[in-house]
Structure formats: C-alpha cells, structure tokens
Design a protein around this nucleic acid. Structure first.
Lengths: 340, 340
DNA sequence: ATCAACAATCATAATCGTTTTCATGACACA
DNA sequence: TGTGTCATGAAAACGATTATGATTGTTGAT
C-alpha cells in the first residue's frame, strides 16, 4: 500500500543500499547523478520512510513519552508546553498520556511507552505516595532504564531518577510569613490530595511559617480535596461553615483558589475585605481573577523544558536533580488585617 | 539489551511461534502447560513486546496523531482532552503536536506522523486559508488516506475529510442579536487572525445579526489580532482609543475577551456599566472572570471526542461531517444599554 | 604500454523482533 | 492401518540499515 524504499530504488534504477545511503545518511559515497536519481524518485513517489522499520534496525527511536495528570489542567498544560518546546527543537515526537493520577493507568502507560521503545519518559504529577504501586512503577522504570531508556521527573517523587523540583516548601513558607506579617491569625487551608508530595511540601512550608510565629493551625482548619476548581469550591463551603472566624484562606493551588473565590463570592463574602485568599502556582489566569490572586509563581513551562533537557542529554551516570526557586507574587487578593 | 520474544521462548523451552501465539493472540491452539510456561517465562523476564516489530509485520499501529495549535491554549487543551478520552478508551496512544499555526511546522508534523504509520490524524486549529500550504497539506493528507490512514478535522477547514464543526455562524448571530436586543448600536469587535475560518465564520454570523437590524459595523470598529490574551489586550487598547464611543465589545474568543477585560480595567472603564463585553467558546475560566463572561459555549471536549470517534470508526467510504450546536451563555459582562 | 594495486562505488545479504503461513509429527478414532 | 484433527515448529515475510564482498576505474611502476 505505502511506498517503500525498494519502490524508490527500483524507479531510480539503483540498489536498495544506494537508495538507503542517499535518503538516510549524509549520502556519503554516492555519485551526484545517482544521488539525484534517487532523490527525484523519492520525491515523485512521495516516499515517507517507515519509522518502525528504522526503529527496529536502529534499536532506538526519536519519540519521547510524557505522563501527566491531565493536559487540560493549566499546571500540566504549561509543563507540557515546556516539554514540547525542547522536544520539538530536538526533533523528537511527543506522546502525551493522561494518567488522571490513577496508578493503574500510570503503570499501563509506562508499559505502552516501553513497548514503543521511547527514548525517554518524563513523569509529571504522579508523585503519589502509594507503596504498592510505587514499587511496581519503580520496577518498571528500572527495567526501562536498564534497557537504555531515560527518565526524568517533574516535581518531587519517591522514586529515584533525574528530577526538576520546584521549591514548594520555600514558596509556601514565604506565603505563610506574608500572611503572618499581615496579622492574620486565623487561617484556613484548602489542601490537595493527602498522598501527593506537592500537598505535603506546601503544607509543611506553610506550617513552618506559622509555627515560627507561634500561630496554631488546628486540624479542623485544614480541608483536603482534589486539586480542582470543584474541589476547592466544595471544600471552601465546608470550611467557612466549620470555621467562620478565619480571616485568610490558603488554597494549595490556583485551581483550588478559583473554587475558593467562587464559594466566597456565592456566600457574599468579599475578598480581600473580609477574607484574604492566596493560591499557589501562578497559572496564567491568576492575574485575571478579581481580585487578582496573590500566589507563588512556579516556573511550570521552565520545569517541563528542563526535565525534557535532562531526559534527552543526561548521561545516565550521575543523578541530576535541579531545584527551581519559586517566587511570591503579590496581588490584590490578600491584604493586611485591619484592626477592628 | 531488551528482552525479546525469543528470550521468552528459549526460557520456556518452546518455539518462537508458540510464544508468539500465547502472547499476542488469544493463545488459541496452545495447550495449557505450554501456555503457562510461556506466560511465566514472560513474567519472569518482564517481557515487553517491541511495538515497532509488531507494527512492521502487522502494517498498522495503535497510535494516533493529533495536531493542535497549542496544548496550553484552553480551547485546544479541552479539545485534546476529549480526543484523549476516546483514544485511551479504544486503547490508542496519542501523539500530540503543537503547530503554533505555522504551516511549515504543520507539514513537517504530518510527515512525521505518516512515518510513524499512525492509524489516524486529528487536525484541530489549522484552518488557515493559505493557498500554497493548503495544497501541499492536502496532497500529504490524500496520500495518507490512500495508504489507509484516517483523517478528521475539528473545525471548518478548506480540505475535505471527516469533520466536526461547531456552529460558529449561528452562535455569533445569536450573540449579535442579543447585543442588538440590548440596544447596543455602537459595537467594537476584536477579531482573530484574518485567514482563520473561525474568525470569518464568527464575524459573518455577527455581522448578519447587525445587518438584519440595520446597524452598521464600520471597518474601523474591527481590530484583528491573534487569538491570545496579549493580542486581545493590545487590540482593545487601540480600539477604545480609535472608537471611544462604543458601548459593547465582541471578542471573538474568550482568551481575547480576557485581554479585553484587562485593558478596560486598566483604563478604568467599568464592565458592564460602561461597556458590555462578550466572548466566544466558554472556556472553563469564563465564569470565573469578574464580571462573569457572557459568551457562546462551544462543546470543545465533545468535538475532540467526536472527531476521534470519526477517525477511529469511519469506514472511509462516505464523508461524515457533524455540525454541533453552540449555546448562548448569559452572564454578567453584558447588560442592556440604559438610556442616558 | 601493460599490469598490479588501490580507491571509489555499488550490490548482495544479514539483521532487527514480531506475526503467520505452511509443514510436520503425534494422537485418537474408526 | 488409514485418516482427520490438533499442537507445535521451521521459515518467510514486514521495511529499513549496514557490513561485506564484488566491480569498476584510476594511477603508478616497470
């Protein structure tokens, strides 16, 4: 059905070897006239090489795999954009897989990507601390690495491998200190999934800031939910019902913060006048919310780009872990508590 | 390096053929004891089949290609999500490519996807009316189809093939009638790239509503820019400088509308009190803007899902084009003009 | 001028890891 | 004992790359 190299060779009146030499390598060792005949024949027949045949004989491909939670989540779509930028600059095709943080699906995808003999896999947004699947995943990844594959993580994981890690702890601590500096003493937290390292790190950093100021964060001030607008919305509704006296809310990521703002708006609570709200990530929309969201910038695209770079260029010999700083972004959604 | 089928066969003490029968097909015609030996051998060696070898002999793959403008644009990330849902339910791997609406890059990617022998390609968001590249793209796609590939478009294109098309004209007309009904007579438009069918259709639909009401839309009321927040921001700044008397702005998509809102906010113009703003697409963030954006809902994820379905199930015999309705979403950013 | 040696090109064939056709052998049943 | 059935193995694809061997032409020496 499809045009093959031997079709091209036949039409050009040369052997397979010659045609291959012309089309694949720098055509070294083929006279100009033959080379031209091959090139025109390929052009006329609209020859497209079979990447699988090439992969088979070369024992390597130019495709890379990416495992994210969900491409339509702004955090991951930014990360993916960074990955794509580097990958396409390096002439690599990207296979994107949505795991939806389902460990089973994650395992399946890694298996599929291994079957595709991808050069490298970038894992972003699993980071689930689930012993059972962690081990299976680790086993899979080890085998992949043993067979010559490269791995890079975006975010802190419990598995070993090259990684690009944002300073979640530091960012959250800065956020906490800022709220403390604004005299907030009763703070609610809308957190993400318990098992996620991101949740833990941000919670830890935030708590450390409160502790150094001698401020308590009772467990009932923390609501756990999933990292989504809907999760943030529901959790916030419960939170303000349970602890109505809070003067500030820390949403562990911006999607959640959007839900928080929606819930507060619905209850007629004015932000930041009655309650200050802060988020995390600085997704592109954060500044377009009203009030514009005070948050911590995580260099999402940069992280993706660096992870892809590590995965493509790493020698595999030594473990490379890059820590990227986060930055406090002051906007209108958080203000000092006015003395009443 | 990697474990191959013959490794498995050797360890199980069977022939290659038997091992293949067990692992690939429904193991029909292999006795239980041999089958078990093969399965345990595969398990112990952690065998992962080489997808390229399979693709080579089967002359087909289980991967599909997706060509979008940019995965980090909410419109396309929603479309991609729909595509992913259907693809992964059908056991297909998805290769996502960002064309950034660059025709050259688009051609390159189609070529790469053809080399990968993908089953199907879903094209979303090219729709560029550029004769020169259109023809080349059409040629490429025809060859792909001729060699057994399947194609589906998301959005109206100038190329023939199965397609899922939102009712941009009808949606824009409804939006126009609504603004007319609200007594707006001086309306500005922030449009997308001139060559995009989406721009044209939305502009046409909107104009038709104004024409039927006998309202003029002078050329200087229309600013063309690219479909982005920044584009919308800049274009709006120019627009309100050029035609300060307008009472409503139609942004041709929600990203642009976000830029429009930002520009107006910066100028101290209150929406909707002084100027009404409407968008198009109903991206997830539209309702979280302040004021919440009146817009037209385009079923983005649904479109992606249907396009993928067409690409996977279509018989290739008859051309299938699905038109999906759009829906006016009334929110707070547009209000009737109050008599002054 | 002729022949050997060598360089430059090209063709043949092996190879990658599967699937699948075809052949073979065993077994059971009549 | 012959025949049909069934499990199994040997081998030929699939489409490319590339090592190896063959052929041609060129050059230098005698």
């Amino acid at each position: 059905m499809a045009v093959t190299l031997s079709d091209v060779a036949r039409r050009a009146g040369v052997s397979l070897a010659t045609a291959s030499r012309v089309l694949s390598r720098s055509s070294y060792g083929v006279k100009a006239d033959l080379r031209d005949r091959v090139l025109t024949a390929a052009e006329e027949l609209r020859y497209v090489p079979n990447a699988h045949a090439q992969a088979l004989v070369r024992a390597s491909t130019s495709t890379v795999g990416v495992l994210v939670h969900d491409v339509s989540d702004p955090y991951f779509s930014e990360v993916t954009r960074g990955i794509q930028r580097v990958a396409s600059a390096a002439g690599r095709l990207v296979m994107v897989c949505n795991s939806y943080r389902d460990p089973v699906r994650e395992l399946e995808y890694v298996s599929l990507l291994r079957a595709q003999r991808v050069q490298a896999i970038v894992l972003a947004g699993s980071g689930l601390d689930d012993r059972r699947y962690s081990q299976q995943l680790a086993a899979q990844l080890n085998e992949f690495v043993d067979s010559g594959g490269r791995i890079a993580f975006v975010g802190r994981h419990h598995l070993t491998g090259d990684a690009v890690i944002p300073d979640n702890v530091g960012g959250a601590r800065a956020l906490g200190r800022m709220l403390v500096g604004m005299k907030h003493r009763h703070i609610g937290v809308v957190a993400g999934p318990t098992l996620l390292t991101t949740t833990r790190d941000r919670l830890d950093g935030f708590q450390s800031a409160l502790i150094e100021a001698g401020i308590a964060l009772p467990p009932e001030h923390i609501m756990y939910t999933d990292f989504s607008r809907e999760g943030g919305y529901q959790a916030t509704r419960h939170l303000i019902e349970r602890v109505p006296h809070i003067t500030a809310i820390f949403a562990l990521n911006d999607m959640v913060a959007i839900g928080t703002l929606a819930a507060l708006r619905e209850r007629g609570i004015v932000v930041p006048d009655q309650i200050s709200v802060v988020g995390f990530d600085d997704i592109p929309f954060a500044r377009d919310l009203t009030p514009a969201l005070t948050t911590v910038r995580v260099p999402m695209a940069e992280m993706g780009a660096r992870a892809m770079t590590l995965a493509l260029n790493g020698d595999g010999a030594e473990l490379k872990v890059e820590h990227l700083p986060t930055e406090l972004i002051l906007r209108a959604s958080a203000v000092p508590l006015r003395a009443e």
